[in-house]
């Protein structure tokens, strides 16, 4: 019997496709997410909008909070660790979390190195802003990628920028001749073998979700039409006026992302979405997406 293989890690990510992963901070929210049809929940102490407001150093959540959420739902539970903080990851693996997000939403623990994710039997998801960053994380063992967007803003503009960057670069690579691959690998600062794989497959070799600023069903469907395999919704659900309604509407919007009639139906009378932030008012130091490389 073999456990912790790369196929088992990427396989779990494949099972999440077409789904919505929701940030939750307690058992009650986790139940709301599960009942609405979420494929997984991200267990946190605070949603990104509150992390942004609170300032200070943001760290891995208290394991007791994560365990409470694990006990409340039957769907997979994810949790975040700081970039490079492999001991936080060891702790999450020990308590049995199903997926670890090495996340820029928390304050980085290492500004030069990400976690060597091959060493773990639990799968990792990592953020990216472009194809090079995605392939570096996959090279380190990430079993799933999400575009970063700008978490906690309720503003989809950065998520769109990052998804367009990744998908555009993939389209460019599929048209390359074999001898051009090394040149592109050099430009992207990405492993040669993975660039080659992208050319063969015409997509990333692992599942790619969208994240960071998705606040409405239309935002979620937009990311799907741009090529996402699914979406993470952080503050968008539990910072809205009616979380159960928003949660359900976003789940439906992702499953029917290419059907405007369904999108119109699920967008009606949802109440106020989370209040958004104009990303342009944020200073460079306040941007989460620039954490990690």
């Amino acid at each position: 019997m073999e456990k912790g293989s790369y196929r088992l890690k990427t396989g779990l990510a494949e099972m999440l496709k077409g789904g919505v992963i929701m940030d939750v901070t307690n058992a009650e929210q986790a139940k709301i997410a599960e009942d609405a049809g979420a494929v997984s929940v991200m267990a946190l102490e605070r949603v990104p909008a509150d992390i942004r407001a609170a300032g200070g150093v943001a760290r891995m959540a208290d394991p007791a909070i994560i365990e409470e959420i694990m006990g409340a739902v039957s769907i997979p539970v994810m949790a975040k660790v700081r970039i490079g903080h492999f001991v936080e990851a060891q702790i999450l693996e020990a308590i049995g979390v199903d997926f670890i997000d090495e996340s820029e939403v928390l304050t980085p623990a290492d500004e030069e190195h990400h976690i060597d994710k091959h060493k773990f039997s639990v799968p990792f998801v990592c953020g990216c802003r472009n194809l090079g960053e995605a392939l570096r994380r996959i090279g380190e063992g990430a079993a799933m990628i999400r575009t970063k967007g700008e978490a906690g803003t309720g503003n989809v503009v950065e998520a769109v920028r990052h998804m367009r960057a990744v998908m555009g670069e993939i389209r460019r690579i599929t048209s390359l001749s074999d001898e051009e691959i090394m040149k592109v690998a050099k430009e992207l600062q990405a492993p040669y073998e993975l660039v080659k794989k992208v050319k063969e497959l015409g997509r990333l070799p692992v599942v790619n979700f969208a994240a960071g600023g998705i606040a409405t069903p239309a935002d979620a469907a937009l990311m799907m039409q741009l090529g996402a395999d699914g979406v993470f919704v952080g503050s968008g659900i539990f910072k809205s006026e009616n979380p159960p309604l928003y949660a359900k509407a976003i789940v439906e919007a992702v499953a029917h992302y290419d059907d405007p009639d369904v999108l119109a139906r699920v967008s009606r009378r949802l109440g106020q979405p989370m209040k958004g932030l104009d990303v342009k008012v944020l200073s460079q130091e306040e941007l989460l997406q620039v954490r990690g490389w």
Binding site: M1, E2, K3, G4, L12, G96, V97
Partner: peptide
């Protein structure tokens, strides 16, 4: 019975 073998760390190939 759902998730009968446990969480992701109990996932396996054989």
């Amino acid at each position: 019975k759902r998730n009968a073998y446990g969480r992701q760390r109990e996932s396996f190939e054989d």
